[in-house]
């Protein structure tokens, strides 16, 4: 039987099941933690590091989305130190890609943009890398603009875990990392893609989008995921 544990998150007395993560328990108690890669319904991977929290007794910062709660834990989710690191992370994401919000299909409805605003990122203090990355618009309905990709891998996970197609994957390491379809062949030539569009809906930025959309016209709907995941668990 799973035990119930009690802990403190930002001075609030919280309870949760021992198999839950800090993020899940925090959300259950109305505490929001910034995040880009975690999404209800998908396995957490701790890729973006925006949800880092301070846990008393641990020197390191730990991602709330992959850290399990424990009895007596004391968690801080919003210290000045954390805010500083989060701003820095966002700045690095902007500097690493080519994020031109003003001409982006999700301008005004982008999770990265929202976070930047919420965390008070008004300047990028590190030099932009301006990588040269080609758009893949070979799919008949969707397109991938890797310039806007933050490597959250939501697309990879939703495609593998929910749709079961496993079209998306990660390629290379470090600065060269990229999401690819099949064995790095054009999306439009993919044998495995079912054109379900789940990857497009869960993508937090404008990296994956529906073709034919002009600037600011695309709204992502990721809410289907929680319902879908829940009904599968129920065996329905």
């Amino acid at each position: 039987m799973t035990r119930v544990v009690t802990l403190k998150i930002d001075d609030i007395d919280a309870t949760g099941r021992e198999d839950e993560t800090v993020l899940e328990v925090a959300l259950e108690h109305g505490i929001q933690i910034p995040r880009l890669c975690a999404l209800e319904g998908l396995t957490p991977v701790g890729a973006c590091r925006l949800c880092l929290v301070e846990i008393e007794g641990t020197g390191r910062l730990l991602p709330a989305c992959t850290t399990r709660v424990a009895e007596g834990m004391v968690v801080k989710t919003n210290s000045e130190r954390l805010r500083k690191y989060r701003r820095m992370t966002i700045e690095m994401l902007f500097a690493e890609g080519n994020h031109v919000c003003s001409v982006c299909v999700v301008n005004g409805r982008c999770e990265l943009q929202d976070l930047a605003v919420r965390l008070g990122v008004d300047h990028i203090r590190i030099p932009y890398l301006y990588p040269k990355r080609a758009v893949d618009a070979s799919h008949e309905r969707f397109a991938l603009d890797p310039n806007r990709c933050v490597l959250c891998t939501r697309c990879v996970r939703v495609c593998g875990e929910i749709e079961g197609a496993h079209t998306w994957d990660l390629m290379s390491r470090g600065i060269d990392s990229a999401v690819i379809t099949d064995l790095h062949t054009p999306w439009g030539e993919s044998d495995t893609c079912t054109t379900c569009g789940k990857c497009v809906q869960v993508c937090p930025t404008g990296a994956l989008f529906e073709k034919g959309m002009a600037v600011g016209e695309m709204t992502k709907r990721a809410s289907f995921l929680a319902t879908l995941a829940a009904s599968r668990e129920d065996g329905r």
Binding site: S102, V103, V105, A134, V135, A137, A143, D145, K211, G212, M213, A214, V215
Partner: peptide, 11 residues
């Protein structure tokens, strides 16, 4: 060059 044409008016 290389951008989707739907972006062009705003760009």
């Amino acid at each position: 060059e290389g951008r989707p044409f739907h972006e062009m008016p705003s760009l």
